[in-house]
């Protein structure tokens, strides 16, 4: 394949965006196949370390998406998460990580169309950045002991 096909790690909350992705499936709304989804109960579960780990391991992009503010299945999980995102987003952007590599969104489980549009948009932006050569580990030790 000539064109660069990015790998994007996506973190979705179970109740909203994961559901939107399910519904996008039911509705057969196609989008680029470049995502690998990690399902979380809530975006409040997302530790900034996860995002760093994805980049370290060579992800070309990271997409975090959860319930709209006010819609959190756990009342306020995404409100707390949002504060973490504000810090992380500013920090990574400030130190020179291309903001196109990191996307945050709110997509409810009914918004399959928004999901599709966002998925396409994320890939388009990550593609514009090119492969992640600068914000990753030089050598990956992919053996299991490091994770187990």
């Amino acid at each position: 394949m000539s064109e660069f096909e990015p790998k994007v790690v996506a973190f979705f909350c179970n109740w909203c965006t994961y559901g939107a992705a399910d519904l996008a499936g039911v509705s057969r709304l196609d989008y680029p196949p470049n995502f690998r989804v990690v399902r979380l109960p809530c975006t409040g579960r997302l530790n900034p370390k996860f995002i760093m780990e994805a980049f370290k391991r060579g992800a070309d992009g990271v997409w975090v998406s959860g319930c709209h503010p006010g819609d959190c299945h756990y009342i306020a999980g995404n409100y707390y998460a949002r504060r973490k995102f504000i810090l992380l987003h500013t920090l990574l952007e400030s130190i020179g990580v291309d903001p196109n590599r990191l996307r945050f969104s709110w997509i409810s489980s009914a918004e399959a169309n928004k999901f599709q549009a966002m998925a396409r948009d994320v890939i388009e932006h990550v593609k514009a950045c090119g492969p992640n050569l600068t914000f990753r580990k030089a050598e990956l030790q992919l053996d299991l002991p490091e994770v187990a």
Partner: peptide
């Protein structure tokens, strides 16, 4: 919800079924 697990700086809380180790393994496998 796991808010505690992601907010603690020293990872004292962990969310059963969605542990750091498990999620890391998923990220790495991705």
């Amino acid at each position: 919800c796991g808010n505690c697990a992601s907010s603690c700086r020293s990872d004292a809380p962990s969310l059963r079924g969605f542990t750091n180790a498990g999620l890391f393994a998923q990220i790495d496998a991705a």
